[in-house]
Amino acid sequence: LDITFHVDGKNIHVHGASEEVVRIIEELIKNNARAEEIKETLERLLR
């Protein structure tokens, strides 16, 4: 699975993920999660 995301100002662009995963990533970023935390969360979800 190949998910890429980047933050452009306040806009979060996520590619290669389901809508549910996109929402989770957006929440994590809004809550100022570190990249490592986001990665760990995604790995748990995608197991």
Rank of each mutant, 00 (worst) to 15 (best):
L1A: 08
L1S: 09
D2A: 02
D2W: 03
T4Q: 12
T4S: 15
T4G: 12
T4M: 10
F5E: 06
F5G: 06
H6T: 14
H6W: 15
V7T: 04
V7R: 00
D8V: 01
D8Y: 02
G9Y: 00
G9C: 03
G9N: 03
G9D: 07
G9E: 04
G9S: 02
K10Q: 15
K10T: 15
K10M: 15
N11H: 14
N11K: 13
I12E: 01
I12A: 00
I12R: 00
I12V: 08
I12M: 06
H13W: 03
H13Y: 08
H13L: 05
H13V: 11
V14A: 07
V14W: 06
H15T: 10
H15C: 06
G16C: 03
G16S: 08
G16A: 07
G16H: 07
G16I: 04
G16F: 05
A17K: 01
A17P: 03
S18N: 07
S18A: 06
S18L: 04
S18I: 04
E19L: 13
E20A: 09
E20Q: 11
E20C: 03
E20W: 06
V21G: 02
V21W: 09
V21I: 14
V22S: 02
V22R: 06
R23Y: 08
R23K: 12
R23D: 07
I24F: 12
I24V: 12
I24P: 00
I24Q: 10
I25T: 01
E26H: 14
E26F: 10
E26C: 07
E27N: 14
E27K: 09
E27Q: 12
I29N: 01
I29T: 02
K30L: 12
K30Q: 10
N32M: 11
N32Y: 05
N32D: 13
N32H: 12
A33F: 07
A33I: 09
A33Y: 06
A33S: 11
A33K: 10
R34P: 13
R34K: 14
R34D: 12
A35W: 15
A35N: 07
E36K: 10
E36C: 07
E36N: 10
E37H: 12
E37P: 02
E37M: 13
E37N: 08
E37A: 12
I38R: 01
I38W: 04
I38F: 08
I38V: 14
K39Q: 13
K39A: 10
K39S: 13
E40C: 05
T41I: 14
T41C: 07
L42D: 00
L42E: 00
L42M: 07
L42H: 00
E43F: 03
E43P: 00
R44A: 13
R44H: 13
L45P: 00
L45F: 06
L46R: 06
L46Q: 09
L46M: 14
L46W: 03
R47W: 02
